[in-house]
Design a protein around this nucleic acid. Structure first.
Lengths: 239, 239
DNA sequence: TAGTGGTCTAGACCACGTT
DNA sequence: ACGTGGTCTAGACCACTAT
């Protein structure tokens, strides 16, 4: 029970404010001495806090109490920029930049994408991938799929979609999105996501699947968005 | 690098379908033999998968690949039962039951609650706590705060709020909620939440802060909802 | 260079489940 | 009884960070 009790003590100390965000916790050696345990036991106690997302470790330097200052991603039925997501984040999350990673005019659609967009087998999709960064750190990764029958040959299939973003271009093409569905799940990140978003151990991701529908009810865009949960709060206003 | 490579191999095997949800992974002893490593190393490899939420361990029985069959919590601007949350979950999540844990007619309000509800210092709140279970397993814990000036003396301060739930009673009192704001965050659970919701290691929680506003814009209810992310998907329909 | 965390070994005892 | 995971020890070597 010693590793657990070390974690318990430190956790209580963090909650009570003995250690505040940014503070360094006692070193492994210090814990070994105070609790009279082996190193692996002290480590295990500390690792529990890390798994809870309470601390971050810095190799060679120490274990530190973690902070949470979320970017608010506001998803009201709202006017759009590159995508609704981008526009709204820019309002609240100062210092956010967007990097378009790849745009493919015509690609094969994974089965789930095809189903969600109501496409037939063999139908192509336009794929846009982008990354959002907060002060150099990647915090959000998004992949958008649009039917190539709509998007190919328009600025949507270009790197620069122009003023108003994909939604404005969809409107230009007579497919203005008017209704959205967002499905939100939280889970631990995959290895790829840990690397891509440089996610701290003990931090989950929010995975948002967003479907945009035109006035006639046809889906015109499917987006998979993965957000570092250590960086974001999702806000929904519902009438 | 061995613990990491064991995790890598097993992860790949799970992704490729060699092990499907419910399957048992090789035991620690088996991994020690195949990889020629010490037990702690094999354990560490397995613990990585657990931390990623890919597996669950059953003491004395083995390590198993995990499944995800989410309950869809649909939060459209919707008619309300006990609370909107409850009503909507019942539609989709078969076998969900609600247990009202505690109802306090008049309690002191934590500062954050007071601010969110626009109350003055010393103002009291009515507090309702409830737990949702899926087949005996608790999956959601919710605490609702309402201004006691509105709720005390009404069925809202009783265990049984009656047909239509708190929202119907608020409407009866002339404070029908018409607008909602939901702030969604994902994080690792606290120890209390792990115990209360019996959350598997490697599973985050979704923490939803929901504010209900009456037609005149005054907040009439603040709810803190914690959901086991291994059990839920949040759905938002936006116009 | 000294102190920090990261990884691994080899062995022990305990607690839980299945047979 | 046996095999499973859970915990702990005591010691080693490595990699990173500060001074």
């Amino acid at each position: 029970m010693t590793a657990a009790s070390i974690a318990k003590d430190l956790r209580a100390a963090i909650r009570s404010g003995t250690y505040t965000p940014g503070d360094r916790l006692p070193s492994e050696a210090a814990l070994m001495a105070t609790y009279g345990v082996a190193r692996m036991t002290a480590r295990h106690g500390l690792s529990m806090l890390k798994d809870e997302g309470l601390t971050v470790t810095r190799h060679g330097s120490g274990v530190f109490v973690r902070a949470f200052e979320p970017i608010i991603r506001d998803t009201t039925g709202a006017p759009a920029d590159d995508s609704t997501v981008t526009a709204e984040i820019d309002e609240t999350g100062a210092g956010l930049t967007v990097r378009t990673l790849a745009v493919t005019a015509e690609a094969d659609a994974p089965e789930k994408v095809r189903t969600a967009l109501g496409l037939a087998e063999g139908d192509k999709v336009t794929v846009r991938e982008r990354l959002h960064l907060r002060e150099r750190k990647p915090v959000l990764f998004a992949t958008s799929y649009l039917p190539a029958s709509i998007a190919a040959g328009t600025p949507i299939a270009e790197r620069d979609v122009g003023q108003g973003g994909t939604h404005a271009r969809l409107a230009d093409a007579g497919h203005a999105p008017v209704r959205f569905r967002e499905d939100v799940v939280a889970r631990m990140p995959s290895i790829e996501e840990i690397e891509e978003l440089r996610i701290e151990p003990g931090t989950p991701v929010l995975a948002v699947t967003r479907t945009a529908f035109a006035a006639d009810g046809t889906p015109v865009e499917l987006s998979h968005v993965v957000l570092d949960a250590g960086e974001f709060m999702l806000r929904y206003d519902i009438d």
